[in-house]
Amino acid sequence: MALATRTDRKPSLTRTFWGSTIGKKTVMAVSGLVMLGYLVAHMFGNLKIFFGAGEFNAYGHWLRTMGEPVMHYGWALWLVRVVLLAAVVGHGVAAYQLSRRDIRARPTRYLHKRPRASYATRTMRWGGIILALFIVWHVLDLTTGTVHTGGFQEGHPYQNVVDTFSTWYGNVIYIVAMLAVGLHIRHGFWSAAQTLGAGNAARDRILKGAANGLALLLTAGFLSVPVAVMTGMVN
């Protein structure tokens, strides 16, 4: 009598976690906080442009030498890029799968016409698409120089930034993307806190205030650079 082979193996903890709704929401929350931390650091780095070309270019050079002599030239920057790429992919995939799961669970539209969610909540999906497209454009513009106008200069980020914001389309793309960032953070920070268990009835007001403050700070900080170039403060 032949022995039956067992094929019904129990799924791994990783697969079980990823397959659950709470698992996907946790991935979105953690990856979102990773990207938020990067945005804060990136904004402060961008503000160095107000201290002149020398300091801004030196900051750009430091990004490639940080970690030396323990790491070789550019290694730490590539490590940051890999972590960010993993965060962006994980965030996007989890968001898409949660969206599809929500649609399958609610195949018909609500009968009432009045929207339940805030404007930021209802535009999170479109905001995510806008930001994904912006990331591609931003990298091709100021990192590789592929779509850069005015002659991309390797090692001269100050002049490259000025070139970008000296064009109307560069300003439009950047401003629209930064407004999308603000809306995304305004809703996403509070949502991440709820998912990770930091929120409750007593803390909700504080968390929402922190989300609004972060969204306003980052939006204003990022937009200050193109505005400075457009007004001639930075040239």
Results as ranks from 00 to 15, higher is better:
residue 143 T to M: 14
residue 198 A to M: 14
residue 154 E to A: 07
residue 24 K to Q: 11
residue 179 L to D: 00
residue 177 A to E: 09
residue 216 L to P: 01
residue 54 G to V: 15
residue 20 S to T: 15
residue 87 A to E: 02
residue 43 M to T: 06
residue 17 F to P: 01
residue 103 I to L: 06
residue 98 L to V: 02
residue 134 F to C: 02
residue 73 Y to R: 05
residue 37 G to W: 08
residue 207 L to T: 11
residue 78 W to H: 07
residue 198 A to D: 01
residue 101 R to H: 13
residue 173 I to Q: 03
residue 72 H to K: 02
residue 129 I to D: 08
residue 5 T to E: 15
residue 163 D to P: 03
residue 157 P to Q: 03
residue 222 F to D: 13
residue 220 A to H: 13
residue 233 M to C: 00
residue 108 T to H: 15
residue 141 D to S: 09
residue 70 V to R: 02
residue 127 G to Q: 02
residue 15 R to F: 01
residue 121 T to L: 09
residue 98 L to Y: 02
residue 148 H to E: 07
residue 86 A to C: 13
residue 219 T to Q: 04
residue 36 L to K: 02
residue 62 W to R: 12
residue 199 G to I: 00
residue 20 S to F: 00
residue 183 L to K: 06
residue 36 L to D: 12
residue 133 L to H: 01
residue 25 K to Y: 14
residue 28 M to V: 00
residue 78 W to K: 04
residue 123 T to S: 15
residue 209 G to Y: 12
residue 108 T to E: 08
residue 170 G to E: 10
residue 194 Q to I: 07
residue 201 A to R: 15
residue 153 Q to A: 09
residue 91 H to Y: 14
residue 73 Y to M: 14
residue 152 F to W: 09
residue 197 G to F: 05
residue 144 T to A: 03
residue 103 I to G: 01
residue 125 R to M: 15
residue 116 R to P: 07
residue 91 H to L: 10
residue 187 H to N: 10
residue 19 G to P: 10
residue 155 G to P: 04
residue 40 V to S: 03
residue 65 T to V: 08
residue 112 H to M: 02
residue 70 V to K: 04
residue 108 T to K: 05
residue 38 Y to P: 00
residue 60 G to F: 14
residue 42 H to E: 00
residue 80 V to Y: 07
residue 92 G to Q: 07
residue 124 M to D: 05
residue 192 A to D: 14
residue 180 A to M: 12
residue 119 Y to L: 10
residue 55 E to K: 05
residue 50 F to W: 12
residue 77 L to S: 04
residue 229 V to G: 08
residue 52 G to V: 09
residue 45 G to H: 03
residue 24 K to S: 00
residue 175 I to N: 11
residue 91 H to E: 06
residue 48 K to E: 15
residue 223 L to C: 07
residue 208 K to Q: 14
residue 58 A to K: 06
residue 158 Y to F: 14
residue 118 S to Y: 10
residue 25 K to H: 08
residue 161 V to T: 15
residue 121 T to G: 07
residue 217 L to E: 08
residue 129 I to H: 10
residue 56 F to N: 05
residue 29 A to L: 01
residue 229 V to I: 09
residue 229 V to Y: 00
residue 211 A to F: 11
